[in-house]
């Protein structure tokens, strides 16, 4: 682990968190800055501000977490916490990510229960829902810049979209079939020795 304080590598040197408390506080703070996705904040906080991880280390962790099922940032918390403190680190990072935002969102739920029927509140939420749906579509559009999508495999993504939106199939079978076909195609091509 590169916790060297060497002057020459000042820009890339990383120092691990000193305690579980520091880990908890860091994940709480980064979670509270994330609106519509915590990953970009986590990248900034862990690499640039706290310098716990280098860019390459973070990219590697993220790539592994994206290959595994489950919410990505939650998986990143598990891996980052485990890196220095084992299972306890994973639990503390998760607690940091979720505990304070969970309490906040429950408080909002109770406000919603009291005021959600008020015409102004429900109208505001209608507008927010429309924008939030757009933000999700925007995230998907941004993903098209990735080289992983600039291949014939994009057909599986387009197929999944058409199946859910236009043919109205449910997401779970569409996911299983599209992901299964995509994986099988990759595997066959690899075995055939052709570069995909």
């Amino acid at each position: 682990m590169s916790d060297t304080k060497d002057m020459h590598s000042k820009d890339t040197a990383t120092t691990p968190p000193r305690s579980l408390r520091e880990l908890y506080v860091a994940f709480t703070m980064l979670a509270l800055q994330g609106f519509g996705g915590v990953l970009p904040v986590a990248r900034h906080e862990l690499i640039e501000r706290r310098r716990w991880l280098s860019m390459d280390e973070f990219t590697d962790i993220l790539a592994r977490c994206q290959a595994l099922p489950g919410p990505n940032i939650v998986n990143v918390g598990v891996c980052v916490g485990a890196r220095w403190f084992g299972a306890r680190g994973s639990l503390v990072a998760l607690a940091g990510l979720l505990s304070v935002p969970f309490v906040l969102i429950l408080a909002l739920c109770y406000l919603y229960a009291s005021f959600g029927q008020a015409p102004a509140v429900s109208a505001a939420l209608r507008g927010v829902a429309a924008v939030a749906a757009g933000l999700i579509i925007g995230t998907a559009l941004r993903m098209t810049a990735s080289k992983r999508l600039r291949t014939w495999r994009a057909l599986f993504g387009i197929g999944a979209f058409v199946a859910v939106v236009f043919l109205r199939y449910s997401v779970v079978p569409v996911l299983l079939i599209a992901a299964g076909l995509s994986l099988a195609a990759s595997w066959l091509l690899r075995r055939g020795g052709r570069a995909a």
Binding site: Q66, A67, I136, I137, T139, A140, L141, M143, T144, S146, R148, L149, T151, R153, A154, L155, F156, G157, I158, G159, A160, F161, V164, V171, V174, L175, A178, A179, S182, L183, A185, S186, A196
Partner: peptide, 12 residues
């Protein structure tokens, strides 16, 4: 490689 396009399609 296999999941990224499917994830993008399902997200959209």
């Amino acid at each position: 490689d296999a999941l990224a396009p499917v994830a993008a399609g399902l997200l959209a």
